[in-house]
Amino acid sequence: MRSEQPRRPSWERPSLFTRVMAAAGLVFLHAPVWVIALYAFTTEDRTYQFPPPGLTLHWFDVAFARDDIWESMRLSLLVASAATLLAIILGTLAAFALARRNFSGKESITLLFVLPIALPGILTGLALLAGMRTIGLEPGFWTIVAGHATFCLVIVYNNVVARLRRIPPSWVEASMDLGARGHQTFRYVLLPQIATALLAGGMLAFALSFDEIIVTLFTAGHERTLPIWFYSELFRPRERPVTNVVAVVVILVTPGSDPARVLPDAARREEVSRESEVPPHRMPPISTPRNALRPERTHADQTPDQRQARRRRRQGRRRVEPGDRQGAGPRCRGVARPDRRGGESG
């Protein structure tokens, strides 16, 4: 079957060294995930001895019986949904305002919009907490949502603004010319064009909110989202494998939300054909800072790229505690990646 494909010239084929390094990289990224999964089944609940003395499904029973997990899961999902919805509405509005019009101060406003993603979470959290104190706001569900929306908004904004800039102005003019009012032009012409950008941006925003811990710590008050639950579980050595069970469940759910899979094939095809149709000069360079955070390419590779960039930046500031490695909040998102890959090839 190999012979059916034209043989590539030797300089295009990866060398043995490249292959080995690629494999090593994958192992390095994914091995911790398998360790987390493995210790969800261990019979020993205090230390991490390798190999585990025995395997059991007992911890799944324990985990499913614990209300605090369900509550935290529910809260995290609600917060992420609300923050995503808010981000989609506000981010889209902001993108429409800033994509086309030129007005004085536009650059500054653009910078203000993307700044939250560049700020360390701890600063955002502190600032929000101080702000809430000043106006006497009680921390709770909506303050978490507001905190998360600060950076979710940027994700949606970036996706939508990049897409809008590729839409030729003549499409909007053609729509108006044919008799469409503003809302009709939005509904029939612009929304279908930005739909995939909204989907991708919304999913990424959801994922970021779902695992956010630093901003949440400052804005949550007594509420416990799933990452905070993970974090507090680290200090309860009794049922340590339960955290691994929850991590495994989250990992298993994640591949289903991969935008590359969710997007219908037709939408992706259309996107490809449109990209080839739009002449290069119609795609202005992205002028706002943090270019690396907003590549508008195929959604399949966009998500992990952006996640990684953000994770690296934010985690770089946090000391990783020795006992931390089994599944503190921000980790469990990273572990979603191998699973998706495995799912596609296997």
């Binding site: 003549s170 499409w171 003019e173 053609a174 729509s175 029939y188 259309e270 449109r274 149709e277």
Partner: peptide, 9 residues
């Protein structure tokens, strides 16, 4: 329109 401005979707 010069670029026809047909809606691709």
């Amino acid at each position: 329109f010069q670029d026809y401005a047909l809606f691709p979707h």
